[in-house]
Design a protein around this nucleic acid. Structure first.
Ligand SMILES: [Mn+2]
Ligand SMILES: [Mn+2]
Ligand SMILES: [Mn+2]
Ligand SMILES: [Mn+2]
Lengths: 235, 235
DNA sequence: TCCATAAGTTAGGTAAGACTAATAATGGAA
DNA sequence: TTCCATTATTAGTCTTACCTAACTTATGGA
């Protein structure tokens, strides 16, 4: 049972993340194609192959989508552990800004050895969260899930603490950093536009508020009230 | 002029290193095939392709071998800079032993960004030598060559200082480390067997000597007399 | 000078992973 | 219930980088 190719690792990671981000299991072909930047037929073909390897990595439901098998999830979590440890290391040890680490880690995650993975984890003191607040799976594949909710789901008037941000879009990360919205920052929803209108958010108790669209508020996660006490940046 | 594939980078690096190690230019197809662990026809095919890309990377002489063009040498030096900086970083910052860094760097050299390359160089204080004493090319492609000679060429009775070791064979590196032969270690050739017999070498002024075969003494380079003062480990 | 052998190349083929164009299933609106 | 737009799949290519088997060139002894 040798390690799957980089491509297959990317598919598995994407499937895991998409299943986590949007409830709708199974994960759909086009969602995957979008995320991976590939044509849909390429994805169909690869999914069929992944479903029919010795230990099936994926359960493929024709015309419906895919779900990870236990074997597939194991690989996905290993890749994600690599990715998030590398992001953490680049951030902590080499002072990379949080909008650049994802791109770099996407390449490195496939080529580091288990020995290097261990050294990195050790140097960082076995961190549990990456620079975006995403949990780092343990070596045995266990992963901590918190009771976090999307900023877009926060009702008007509520107060919360930022605990996690999607690392997919560097431009959004730069913007968030610029308005002072980082991990552990307290925020308050002062106003909601009608329907899908923008959210007006007070950041870090500052006087001015910021109007944030869905593409931003869907990618920011927060902890409310007592749960907030468990939030912290990784060290 | 986009970056060549990882495979092509490996060919260019190997051609550069082989040309440097053994005088005989042009570098021969089988020498390359051996170094890269590939079948000879695969190498022939790739060399022909590399000779006929827009900016030719290689000058290919049918039945004779190849030489790097200026464009090819530029790429080779960039890859080698990556390789040696990564080796240095793994050794200095992450405490990897000198026999493991080559393998790790062979993978990483192709995927680090220029930004990461710069951060690594900066964190290390712009080192000039890697953990094996090999010179690290500067960003502009300049590289320092010293007046080093092979241990195998050292006459009986001479004294010298180890300044460089091939990083190709981890087993040899482990052995050298074990007998105390490291960078900057002073050595003395106490006896030469007849013809290609083993060299008897005193390491670090210890009482016992070691009999070393050609496969070892060809991979160790030394500086003699006054040149030795220029030798140092990178810091 | 000739030729056996080593070294190098050509020919033909495979595997991975992507693409486009054409076809088929699905599910919601009418 | 029917139909259509969306989504997904099939079919057929392409590129990269390998391989083996068969053939060709170069070379250095006899
Ligand atoms: Mn990746
Ligand atoms: Mn992240
Ligand atoms: Mn390499
Ligand atoms: Mn080295």
């Amino acid at each position: 049972m040798k390690t799957p190719s980089s491509s297959i690792q990317d598919y598995l990671k994407a499937i895991y993340e998409l299943a986590e981000e949007c409830a709708p299991e199974p994960v759909t072909t086009s969602l995957l194609a979008d995320r991976l930047g590939l044509a849909r037929p390429s994805v169909t073909g690869m999914l069929q192959k992944m479903a029919s390897t010795k230990p099936g990595l994926v359960e493929y439901l024709r015309y419906q989508g895919v779900r990870l098998t236990p074997a597939g999830e194991k690989v996905a979590l290993e890749v994600i552990r690599h990715h998030r440890l590398i992001e953490s290391y680049l951030s902590e040890a080499l002072d990379f800004p949080w909008d650049e680490v994802n791109h770099e880690a996407d390449q490195l995650e496939h080529v580091i050895s288990e020995a290097l993975e261990d050294r990195i984890a050790q140097k960082l003191g076995y961190p549990e969260l990456d620079p975006h607040g995403q949990p780092i799976p343990a070596r045995d594949g266990t992963i901590n899930k918190r009771q976090e909710i999307r900023l877009s789901e926060l009702p008007e008037g509520s107060v919360a603490v930022v605990c996690r941000v999607s690392d997919q879009d560097p431009a959004i990360l730069r913007y968030l950093d610029q308005i002072g919205l980082r991990l552990s920052t307290p925020i308050e929803v002062t106003d909601r536009g009608p329907f899908d209108g923008p959210l007006h958010v007070r950041v870090a108790e500052e006087p001015t508020t910021h109007a944030l669209g869905r593409s931003v508020t869907d990618r920011v996660y927060v902890l409310q009230a007592e749960e907030a006490s468990r939030s912290s940046t990784n060290g």
